[in-house]
Each structure stands twice: as C-alpha cells, then as structure tokens.
Design a protein around this nucleic acid. Structure first.
Lengths: 334, 334
DNA sequence: CTGTTAGCGCTTTCAG
DNA sequence: CTGAAAGCGCTAACAG
C-alpha cells in the first residue's frame, strides 16, 4: 500500500515550484504551455490526484452538490425516484457529483447548508422545510441553494415550482369549453401558497367568464373526502364541473355524484389538480395534473449550478404540469 | 454573514481545552460527564458544527459512501432507480450519506477509489469495470469497496451477486417437472462469469437427471435472436424446454417454435434467465428471472458499512432472483 | 484531564 | 515564473 503522491512530489519531478503545480491544476493563474505540459506529464507518471479534503480546506470548493430529502417515505414514490435520477444526470452534465442526504431530522438536514459543514458547493432542497422560520435565519451564513416548491414568506432562496396559476387557468378554460360555466374549485387550505396561487388564478377566470367567484370556490382545510362530498352535494348538478385540489377531495365528489345519479364524465366533470398515486383507483378514471418531478429536479440543479458558476440568481422558475385526461371529463364538447 | 464558530471558540466558551472539545465530539477519549455537558452546551450556544474538510483532512473519515455508476443509460431503467433508492435508504439507516458518481469515463470513476481523492469512506460499484486489469492494480492503495456483480479473476473485492447456480437449478428442476427431461440451455458467452456459473449448475442438473450435457448446452457468443433461432431449430420438439440466457435469445426461440408449429407454453416451454425490459413484448408472455436490484444495492451497502465499522469482510454474498412465471411455460404438469 | 504542538495537503500570497 | 511561508480547522500525541 504505497502512499499517494503529493503535490510536492509532482513539483520535484517536473522540476518546478509547488505553487506552479497548484496553478496548473486549478487554472487560477497563467502558466506557460511548456511548464503546463511538464507538470501534467509528472502528474500522470506519479498518478497524482489532489487530496480532496486538503483542497477543500483551502479552496472551500468540492464540485459536489447536495440533494436534501426528508426521510418520510416520499422516496418510495416513483416520482421521487425520477427526481433523484434527473438531478443526478443534470449534475453530471456540469461535471458535478450528487450527494444525497436522507434524514428524518429537519434540523440536521438544514445544518448541512452551513458553510463547510458538508463537502458541498450548494444544495437543492425539497419544499417541506420552507414553512420554517429557521430558514430565514440560516440564510445569512449558508451556501447557495435552490428550493423545489414555493417557499412562503420572504425567504430569499431561489426556487422552482409548479406553475399553478397557468395550471388552473388551462384546466378551467378547457372544462368551461366542455361543460359550460358552472365550474367549482374545491381548494385546500388557503394558508398554503399552492392554494393561494390557485385561488388567484380561479378568481381571474371567474372574472373572465363572469362567474360568481364567492359561490364557486370552497376551502377544505384538511383535504378530506368528506369535504369533497359535502361541497359537491351542495352544488353538483348536470353539466357542472368540479375541480379539486387533490384526489382525496375528488373521491368525495365521486360519491356525491353517484348519490345524485349523475354520471361522471358524461353529466359532470371532475378534475384533480394534484394526485398522490397511492390514493386508489377511480371509476371512471380520474383526470388530473401530473407534476413532473424529473423536470423540477433538473431545473433546480441547473439553476443552482448557474448560480455557483456565474453568480446569477434567477428568483423563481415555473414548470408546467402535464394534464392527464381520462374518463372523468368529456373528451369533446357536446 | 458571520463566520462560523471554530473549535477554539467552543473551548474558550466552555472553559476547557481545545483537545477536550475534540474528544467530546469524536468520542475518541473519555471525558467526564460534567465537562461533556459544558462542551455540548457551548456548541449549541455558538451553533458550532465541525468543519467537514478540516476533520476529514486530519481524521480521513467522512461518513459518506459512494455509489459509482457508469453513465451509459442504465440509470434510466427502473431497476437502477430502485437500486439507487435502496442504497440511499440502507446508508441512511447507518447514518451515512450517499454520494453518487455518474460518469462516462471509467478511469475517472475508478480514481475516486483512491485514498483521499474523494470525501468517501467506501464505495459500492457496479460490475462493468471489473473485467478491468486496472482494478487489481488499484486495489493496493484504495478504500473499502463492494462490488455488485461478480468480478472475474482474482480481484479481492467483496461482492454481492445473483445466485446463478441456484437460479439455474431451480428453473431446471421446475421445468423438468413440467415437461420432462428434454431441457436445453442456450447460454451466453462462456467467457462471462455469469455463463460459467450457469453452465456449471446446468452440468450438475444434467448429471442428476442423466441428461447428456454436451448436446443440451449451447453457447451464443453474441446473444442474438439469430442464435436462439438456429439452436432452437436444431433441437426444439414437443415437450422440450429451452432456457435462454436472455430475452433476445428467447425471441429467436419463439420464432423457431412458430415455424415448427409448436405452441409455446403448451407444447414447449421457454424461460429466460435474464431480461432487459426494453426487449419488447412476447406472445405468449415470456417467463423470466427478475433480478432485484434493490436487494442487491441494500446488501452491498450493508456489507460495505459492516466492513467499515467492524473491519469484517465477507467475501461473497448471493442474492436470489425472483421467478416471473407467465404463459411461456405450463402452469402445471400435464 | 489540560495545554501545547505538530502535522494533514493544499491554496495563496509575497518578495525575489 | 520561483521558493518560502502562512494558514485553512481539525485530530492526535505528549508532557505536565
């Protein structure tokens, strides 16, 4: 087990100064081609590779970015796996490696973001922690990072998010075209930034089509099937459409429709703006918006690396959802 | 942007020596509970976290393990995503993080394995590189690592591999039970370690059932559909069974069976020992052995960490395949 | 247990 | 461009 070559060995072999070797390797200073070649040759001959810890200690750079995931079972979902692989590939494109932290303790996960605490130049983190007051405190002495999801409050992190405004508008336009103007939105907790965006978009739509906003919007604080059922029982009738924030609410709507003898798809339309795959199967098949985590991940990594390399700092990037149109809405206008 | 606290700050605040702080944090030496508490309190108050690079430089340890993947498109396959997530989860169990290198240059990927070249305590690597002479050279000054797949030659790395011997025996027993003793194996290149294992197992089976080994075994160097077709044309008849190394060979067998007017499943059985999902669909559906990459990954990480923590070093661990039984073989003996 | 000291291997600075 | 030297923040060894 021979000990690895160090920079001084290379310098001696190439007949140059230690600092020259360093300059060649880092590219931080001009070195003549002749010397450069000598140094590179010596590196090869000695099979020299700079020690990661040592260069990190002095330069503070690692060419590694982190992905911070909460250990909450999400990672089991197919979309999350796509996300991880997408981040990995995008990082590799820019010659970065991906270090994944997967931890149940949010505090520990966040402490990673501090300078020098981990061998990372920057981090991508999933949204859950963003409701967190600590984040704004931490922001002062922390490394570059990009958030997937929309941070609430005035936290200054860059983020990439679903374009909920566009999503709601697109879906509403489509459904109004199919069923007419009796369209309702059962939104989730109005305190969530997602809900706020969606509510705003819905408000604009109502204005555009002269729909009474107040009576066509509902809030379900706990996003239960029960809420979906109750609201649907109040308003559902032939040729009306209910858009729900998620599949759970939609399942309540399904029950209400059945009770009212309305055929989903044919008589009334149902659309879920979000969907967790584990929420069972729907008959007829539920139409919903799929969030493409691969795109989110790739975009987040791209933004992060752009900031690292060029000091740029886009504030917010929006990503489109994919509409999965199935049997719960009509395929063509009557 | 205040500069992070250092160990000396903590020492001063706690009124102890720098080395005592270090000892508390690393746990390498006994420190009284009283002092320990003081130190921990000071750490909290100053929000101190040890600098990763500095401690790595002196201790050589990182609590990070690497997963080395070749940038060859494999990562797109569902099994690979399972593998990555499985490694991630298993590493997290032991409080390790997972650093993924995803590179198209095998040399660079391997150089990662050298002491101090990367912030990792050990690595899991996928098999492709193992045919490589460099690996045995590198083995001298490299970190702990576990290989997924079977290394050929005398390389001393630990590995976790599919139990090909058991697989072949199980499949043969099953098929002979269903169709009788006219069972053939179309193996892939005999130079591959997989093939060698499978051939050996088949040889034992032949002995057990008094089957003529020589005439029942074929080698397809390039694993083509063409080879599958040709060999099958030579031997396929009613109540015979062909086991192929992979789905491509099996597709050739399908064609031969059709040409001979033999019904697959009913008249003859076909089974593929391996399968890449992209090899189209088969009618009737092909039976095959699925390799569970999640299990392989988790096991590899477990072995690696065991070696890191306890210095243990299992030589080789075998993992069972899952048999996916579908229409290309009979469901019960006639 | 304290306190000092010598590294770890690199980057950076600075005078020549 | 060279050569020497300071320093990054920590661990580990040692004498008290």
């Amino acid at each position: 087990m021979k000990t690895p070559a160090k920079i001084i060995d290379v310098a001696k072999r190439a007949g140059v100064a230690k600092s020259t070797v360093s300059n060649v390797l880092t590219g931080n200073k001009y070195v003549s081609d002749e010397l450069k070649e000598k140094v590179l040759k010596a590196c090869k001959e000695l099979d020299f590779h700079p020690n990661f810890y040592a260069s990190g200690l002095s330069s503070g750079t690692s060419k590694i970015i982190a992905l911070l995931l909460e250990n909450n079972g999400d990672v089991e979902k197919p979309f999350y796996k796509e996300l991880i692989v997408a981040c990995l590939k995008k990082a590799a494109e820019y010659d970065y490696s991906l270090l994944i932290y997967y931890n149940s303790d949010p505090d520990r996960l966040l402490s990673t973001l501090r300078q020098g605490m981990a061998p990372i130049d920057g981090a991508v983190l999933m949204t859950p922690y963003l409701n967190d007051a600590r984040l704004s405190q931490i922001a002062s002495d922390c490394i570059s990072c990009t958030v997937i999801g929309r941070p609430d409050g005035g936290v200054a992190f860059n983020c990439v998010d679903i374009d909920n405004v566009k999503l709601v508008k697109t879906v509403c336009d489509k459904l109004i075209n199919l069923y007419g103007k009796d369209v309702y939105l059962i939104n989730s907790d109005f305190k969530l930034t997602v809900s706020i965006d969606r509510t705003n978009a819905f408000s604009e739509i109502c204005e555009k089509y002269a729909i009474d906003f107040q009576s066509h919007l509902f809030e379900s604080r706990n996003s239960s099937a029960e809420d979906g059922y109750e609201y649907a029982m109040r308003v559902l009738k032939k040729d009306s459409v209910i858009i729900t924030a998620n599949a759970l609410l939609a399942s309540g709507v399904y029950r209400a429709a059945e009770e009212k003898g309305l055929k989903i798809g044919e008589d009334v339309g149902v659309f879920a703006l979000g969907r967790s795959m584990e929420h069972g199967s729907f008959t007829p098949k539920l139409s919903y918006a799929r969030q493409d985590y691969a795109v989110l991940g790739a975009k987040a990594v791209e933004m992060l690396i752009d900031e690292l390399q060029n000091g740029r700092s886009e504030k917010r990037v929006l990503v489109d959802s994919e509409l999965v149109i199935r049997d719960s809405i009509r395929s063509t206008a009557d």
